[in-house]
Amino acid sequence: MEIAVIGNSEFILGFRLAGIQKTFAAENSDALAELVTKVMDDAEVGILVMNGEDMAKLPLRMRTTLSDSVKPTVIAIGGEEGGLSIRERIKRSVGVDLWK
């Protein structure tokens, strides 16, 4: 399986340099949502990498689907990914702030 990267052209350039073929440029949030749907349906994609800021732009429902998805696994890097951060989630589920 492969890794897919979605983001603006600057973001995906470096990943191309690392050899990732499935890089998709999305310049506005409509294109972003469309590309994400397309990649999620692609059976060959194992990990979907996105920029945290782009992730925050997606509609809430899509974001929930993404963060719950196992195949492909979605990861956001750099910046806040919108919604509850991991720290908040730990606080809510376990009751103690363990992320320090």
Binding site: I3, A18, G19, I20, I47, V70, I75, I86
Partner: peptide
């Protein structure tokens, strides 16, 4: 970027595991 991809692969597994566990 190769190093970054390496750590993405590692983090993807762990982070999703943690989110789902939570």
């Amino acid at each position: 970027f190769e190093e970054l991809v390496d750590s993405i692969i590692r983090a993807a597994e762990i982070e999703t595991t943690m989110k789902r566990l939570l």
